[in-house]
Design a protein around this nucleic acid. Structure first.
Lengths: 209, 209
DNA sequence: TAGCAACTTTGCAGGCGCTGCATTTATATA
DNA sequence: TATATAAATGCAGCGCCTGCAAAGTTGCTA
């Protein structure tokens, strides 16, 4: 171990270059999607703009779609991690609250991505499909909280409501850019708490019913 | 009007043949998907089995995916129609209740379709995406009931909950085949009513909160 | 019933996304 | 510097999908 001292070349030139190439491709693609449309941009053109061979793109992304969505998907993975590794005693709802609390507001690229997606119905559908992955994830986590199966109607309802709340919050984060008032974390939390009231009341009513 | 009497050749041979061809293609495709897998079945093979030219398939279906999903989509269209044309005074919830009440249990082809979809993660995602279309539809309808915007959190929550309920019911309709007890309309209605209790209680709690 | 108009089916050429495989080029290590 | 490892590329090819024009059907009417 004496060989690795103060300087830490742990992440060699290789890794750095890879990271850089990946980002170059993603940025080039995003720019072109925004400028000319998703369908109108070919992988060959992206490759040219990123100064790589078309074949190389597939060393970094699974598909054209993935170039656009992979970054956003990181988000979901992070949430998944938080749900899996949450401390004993904390609930799914707590984890989601914490997650929303830590959400960063969208940067320029996020906005561009959203713009590209919103300009293309097929992409909107694909985005929905990705977001929909959230629901079974939450449902499972909630079922654990409740000590029931994942197909328990209560778990499903809670998961669906929380997903809706989450979607609503992220939508508003974006819509805020285009004219609306700025959406703060407090605002997001307020919505989340409304949803919590809704859930509490709903579950109690089910118990009684 | 004297010319069109008892016999009604309204639907000519042409229309009938078209309908028949469409069905032939759909059935051939479904059989092959079930037998060999969706990805493993090419359009050329489907065309051969259906005894049409490959190019002809696209006269009837928008895409390979559409061959599998178009029939199921009819379902959603019907629901949409019911929501749009529902009598004044009846709510979205009423319309959904009626719809679930009229749902026919799945036939052999429905089951085969489900099997094909469940065997392929990508298809499952696409199915989710299609079902997700239901939610904004319901949301809009509910917002009308409530006299609010479609992005009102209450409308979103109700829509999400109802969608979850609907999904749960149709899932159970299918799962019932594979070992579980048969799921009756009464059972479905019971779930729906539970969800209604949940909604009522939740909305009241939000009001108070 | 012959012939015309409208419609359906088909073939052809080609674009695009994506993949496997082999080769070349660049980086890391001994 | 030589060698092992890994990334980038080129190439050939499959499969989905499209536009377009030709060929084949069907339905109506003179």
């Amino acid at each position: 171990m004496s060989s690795l001292d103060s300087t830490q070349p742990k992440i060699g030139l290789r890794e750095r270059k890879k990271q850089q190439t990946r980002e170059t491709i993603a940025r080039a693609a995003l720019r072109m999607f925004a400028l000319r449309g998703y369908d109108e941009t070919t992988l060959a053109e992206i490759a040219e703009a990123a100064e790589v061979a078309p074949r190389t793109i597939f060393a970094y992304f699974d598909s054209k779609e993935d170039i656009l969505f992979s970054e956003e998907s990181e988000y979901l993975n992070e949430l998944k991690r938080m749900l899996d590794e949450r401390a004993a005693g904390t609930t799914t709802v707590d984890a989601l609250r914490e997650f929303v609390g830590c959400m960063k507001s969208p940067d320029e690229d996020d906005k561009l991505r959203k713009k590209v997606i919103m300009a293309n119905p097929a992409l909107q559908m694909k985005m929905r499909a990705r977001h929909a992955q959230l629901e079974p994830m939450l449902g499972e986590s909630i079922a654990r909280d409740l000590g029931t199966d994942a197909d328990d109607i209560r778990a499903l309802l809670i998961a669906a409501s929380m997903t809706a709340a989450f979607e609503s919050v992220s939508d508003q984060f974006f819509q805020a850019e285009s004219g609306g008032e700025p959406v703060t974390h407090e605002h997001a939390m307020a919505i989340l708490d409304q949803v919590l009231d809704f859930l509490r009341g709903g579950l109690e009513a089910m118990q009684r019913g």
